[in-house]
């Protein structure tokens, strides 16, 4: 365990150094759009971290995370359509809206376990999706253009792709650090303990429902931040962000990157979107490669991916 930690110690640092230098690399190699692509990857990395908090630490397989991302995106989009653009207002608004959504749906979902939880989160995610498609005042099916990126103290610096990238990178680093503190906190211990044996943890005086609801809400709030950034990145919001396949992709990022590690999901998000970008560039039907690949990985992992990760971590 200690050796894994030590090894994992320099890896995030190295990645953040490369990430910090990325816009320069992109420009020197004559591919400035790499910065744009990388911003998108980092945003999804934030979403993946949010999912890892509940999936990796709480063993709650949520299939509705894209819904929380989408609410964050629509918060920014809808605020912008009413002329509210200040990032220091709309981004917290996105976080709040998604957190609130998770809190309310969590009251029903978090009470359930296993397959019920999967299906219910899936259903709530779809509810948001269909709601967005029927919001005719905000573009409905076609989505909503965000005419300008959020301002920071009234200045439009985020319009510059490099500044926007740096902004996202800083937020990702902050989210990562906070998430690490959270899982190492007394609160986080209860979450990881409850996954191992609920009856024991209850018998120690912990209200498991309250703890799970809290982490589910926090997770949703972070996903909302990712959504708010995504709306800024694409300068467009659309129901497609909330499609359940998006939730599935987030699960893939988290699980293949290494769930319950917080750093793994970041790597998973970068790898998945990188692969998507490369494959999609070659062939429009790239999913026909990805699908079987995913099936094979799952079938080949001895005793399931869960145990694969367990043995690696202990």
């Amino acid at each position: 365990m200690t050796s894994t930690r030590r090894r994992a110690g320099w890896l995030p640092l190295a990645l953040f150094v490369v990430a910090a230098a990325w816009p320069m690399i992109a420009e020197m190699s004559g591919n400035p759009f790499w910065t744009v692509l990388a911003s998108r990857m980092l945003i999804f990395a934030i979403a993946a971290i949010s999912l890892d908090l509940i999936l990796g630490y709480g063993a709650m397989v949520s299939f509705g995370q894209a819904g929380a991302v989408g609410i964050g995106a629509y918060s920014v989009g809808i605020a912008a359509s009413h002329g509210l653009n200040e990032g220091l207002i709309v981004l917290p608004l996105a976080v709040l809206a998604s957190g609130l959504f998770s809190l309310v749906t969590g009251f029903v979902a978090v009470r359930t376990r296993g397959v019920y939880f999967i299906m219910i989160t899936l259903a709530f995610g779809q509810m948001i999706y269909f709601t967005a498609t029927s919001l005719s005042a905000y573009g409905g099916d076609d989505g909503l253009t965000v005419w300008s990126r959020s301002t920071i103290f009234g200045s439009g610096i985020l319009e510059d792709e490099r500044v926007f990238y740096a902004f996202v990178l800083i937020l990702l680093a902050a989210v990562w650090v906070l998430a690490r503190l959270l899982v190492a906190s007394p609160f986080g211990k209860v979450i990881t303990a409850a996954r191992q044996n609920e009856a024991r943890v209850e018998s120690l005086g912990f209200d498991i429902f309250a703890h799970r609801l809290a982490i589910y809400t926090i997770s949703g709030a972070i996903a909302g931040l990712a959504g708010g950034l995504l709306a800024n990145h694409a300068e467009f919001v659309s129901p497609a962000y909330m499609n359940w396949q998006r939730s599935g992709e987030l699960i893939v990022m988290v699980v293949l990157g290494g769930m319950g590690t917080l750093f793994g999901p970041i790597a998973g998000a970068l790898a998945y979107l990188g692969l998507e970008h490369v494959l999609a560039g070659f062939w429009q039907h790239w999913r026909i490669i990805l699908g079987p690949l995913l099936i094979l990985v799952v079938l080949r992992a001895p005793g399931g991916l869960g145990s694969f990760i367990k043995t690696r971590r202990t």
């Binding site: 397989v61 999967i118 396949q245 026909i288 699908g291 799952v298 399931g304 991916l305 869960g306």
Partner: peptide, 17 residues
Amino acid sequence: RDHLDQVLATFGVILTL
């Protein structure tokens, strides 16, 4: 197998088909 495995693999089936 774990429900998570089932979810991922059948999700792969969806993407493929």
